[in-house]
Design a protein around this nucleic acid. Structure first.
Lengths: 195, 195
DNA sequence: GCTTGATTACACCGGTCTGTGTAATTAAGA
DNA sequence: TCTTAATTACACAGACCGGTGTAATCAAGC
């Protein structure tokens, strides 16, 4: 039950915005009474925090080469962008919506961003780059930048632009990166999904 | 009067969030009646749109070398991040808050993002880089990425990380970029209103 | 002085929101 | 069958919201 509530809250909060979705809406969507929802979560704030904590899932371990894992991140991003149910980074959105209002939300968001940076860094450590910390930070900038750009432009090709930039940064750090896929044309005009 | 309303709405909308600030709050902050506010703007939506349009000011022309202008962008960003009154990109925040609700808001946000990309592109054209369009896009990714990261982490050094990455990208495109911090010119005076 | 337009105070509307109180209903386990 | 816990329906409180109606007040220009 608790999981069903969280599941639904996740979908609605993420797609429509946290402030835009009321507890009545969530309860109605599942088909339960509002009272039941409040039996599982003491307040909407608690539900919001649980929603963000549930989003905070670390990437599963992979045995692929570090470079492939790093560049693959942007392929996954592009696939996510193409999905209708993609609407930016839930943590950035939450901080933008709730701001200084809820300090806990910000802490969760910071933890998430840092965990992704560390994921990059650990992969870079295995590649013997000169400055794994700084390069990891730069990669997160490309990730978050492409997410923000796609949020407003609805343009999944932002992920490819980020991937190209990541390739250049890795190459500059002495990492051997393969050729760009045949399907990737840097000169392509920026596509638009919606008019 | 209209300008005073916009001024106050700008500050409150940006710092506390659009949905979090009511028209009563704005009127009370200025010390005018709510009726006066509604004499200047037909609805809150109109006020929101005017707020975003007011934020949409293009960067003034500069006669500095293109590379300095490009890298200087990140210096201005860093100074902005350090300010207490910085809370991310108003356009990204607005889209995150209002989402699909208001199509006009999204259009303004898209226009702004594109105008900054074109600003980069026009500078890159003067540098004869192989792919000005793509590189301009990549630079915007670094800008938006550092803004998003600073929004959640409150870490102005993100701008420097972005600048470093930009240097690498420019250098890889055959542009001669000076040593780190060789382009520091303290009195670059461009309105820091945007993003 | 008079007219005109902006601004004011203030009440009020309908709606939505989070959260609670309560009593009835269900279902499962001992 | 009795007990216990979860869930239900439903009303309601209290607050805030966007927006309007109205009549009075103010200020400036003719």
């Amino acid at each position: 039950m608790k999981e069903r509530i969280l599941e639904t809250a996740d979908r609605l909060f993420y797609l429509r915005g946290i402030r835009a979705v009321g507890v009545d809406t969530i309860a109605a969507e599942i088909g339960i009474s509002k009272r039941t929802l409040y039996n599982h979560f003491p307040s909407k704030d608690a539900l919001i925090r649980a929603y963000l904590e549930r989003r905070f899932t670390r990437a599963p371990a992979s045995d692929k080469p570090p470079v492939e894992q790093i560049l693959g991140t942007f392929d996954r991003l592009e696939r996510g962008f193409a999905s209708k149910s993609f609407r930016g980074c839930p943590f950035v959105n939450a901080v933008a919506e709730l701001g200084a209002e809820d300090r806990t939300v910000k802490k969760i968001a910071i933890a998430f961003k840092e965990s992704r940076r560390l994921w990059f860094r650990d992969l870079l450590l295995r590649l013997d780059v000169p400055d794994p910390e700084g390069l990891a930070t730069q990669l997160t900038l490309l990730v978050d930048g492409s997410i923000a750009q796609d949020l407003v432009r609805d343009d999944p090709s932002m992920a490819r632009a980020a991937k190209e930039a990541a390739r250049v940064l890795l190459s500059h750090a002495g990492v051997g990166v393969g050729e760009a896929d045949a399907s990737e044309h840097p000169h392509v005009e920026i596509g638009k999904r919606n008019s």
